[in-house]
Amino acid sequence: MKHKPHSHSVPHHAGSPRTLRQIDPGSAARVAGFAAGTASELRERLLAYGLIPGQTLSVIAQRPVTVIQIEHTELALEDTLAACIEIAAAH
């Protein structure tokens, strides 16, 4: 997986918001919501771990899987799951 060095500055279409998968390791992000079509059981689990809209998290790694930190929990998410989490645009 290649990372765009400044993916947050790349404009994106309104129809496809940025997902957690596209956030560079070492940076922080704010959860906007879940992608349409995210299974309900998955939503519940992600919510239970604290991935609620408005929550900030930091991305620790993107390989071999996405690793994030919320509060003091480190959570590992496979790329298909990370792609279900939409990230709020900066500011």
């Binding site: 689990r45 899987v65 003091h72 480190e74 959570l75 590992a76 998410l77 496979e78 298909t80 799951l81």
Partner: peptide, 9 residues
């Protein structure tokens, strides 16, 4: 089922 797990310290 894709992976989601907590990594304890």
């Amino acid at each position: 089922i894709p992976l989601m797990t907590e990594l304890p310290p």
